[in-house]
Computed example of a mutant assay.
Amino acid sequence: MNHDHYDDAYIADWLGKVRTIAVVGASPKPERPSHGVARFLALHGYKVFAINPGQAGRNIAGLPTYGRLADVPEPIDMVDVFRAPEYLAAVVDEALALLPRPKLIWTQLGVRDDSAAAKAEAAGVAVIMDRCPAIEIPRLRLPRVA
């Protein structure tokens, strides 16, 4: 897939399909974008899990926090990545090891690794890169998920 551009309908369709989201790299600091986006997604109706090894067992933005994706006690529909691009391949590997696998790997603004995306897509996992769901949801006027 070409990750230089996404149709609005494609983004809206994915954000309408997912219900559980793991935010990898969620920060306990309220001023950090990962904290605000995790909170926004939860307030928008998604079931959100924060992933931060140093904060496992605590709450980030009022959300349960786990050290790694495999620790989340239920299937994850979307992995939202707040890690530097050089770590994306490792996050993809961790996501692909889950059973069932997530349906979508989403990377935040500035996070892009075409090789990691190709690996995920070859395994049947969709990828949206260099976008923020907390920007896309209001921009596309998407309703709160049920």
Rank of each mutant, 00 (worst) to 15 (best):
107 T>H: 02
87 Y>A: 14
116 A>R: 09
72 V>I: 03
59 N>H: 15
14 W>R: 02
46 Y>N: 03
23 V>P: 01
121 E>N: 12
17 K>V: 07
87 Y>H: 15
139 R>Q: 14
58 R>F: 14
138 P>N: 05
69 L>P: 02
66 Y>E: 01
116 A>Y: 04
8 D>W: 10
69 L>D: 02
77 D>T: 03
23 V>E: 00
19 R>S: 11
136 E>V: 05
56 A>Q: 00
91 V>C: 00
126 A>S: 13
27 S>N: 05
127 V>R: 11
48 V>S: 04
85 P>N: 09
33 P>Y: 02
60 I>G: 14
51 I>E: 00
92 V>H: 08
13 D>A: 15
114 D>T: 15
142 L>A: 08
25 G>Q: 01
89 A>Y: 01
135 I>W: 09
82 F>C: 02
70 A>P: 09
48 V>K: 02
68 R>K: 15
49 F>M: 15
8 D>Y: 15
7 D>K: 15
30 P>S: 01
59 N>Y: 12
135 I>S: 03
103 K>R: 13
115 S>V: 15
128 I>S: 10
45 G>E: 04
48 V>R: 03
14 W>M: 06
80 D>N: 13
117 A>T: 04
63 L>I: 05
35 H>R: 13
22 A>P: 06
79 V>M: 12
39 R>V: 06
128 I>M: 04
25 G>V: 06
12 A>H: 02
38 A>H: 00
133 P>W: 06
142 L>R: 09
79 V>P: 02
109 L>D: 07
96 L>K: 03
56 A>P: 04
81 V>Q: 08
83 R>V: 00
60 I>V: 13
129 M>H: 08
13 D>H: 14
126 A>F: 14
67 G>E: 06
21 I>C: 04
117 A>Y: 14
12 A>N: 03
9 A>V: 10
55 Q>G: 12
105 I>C: 07
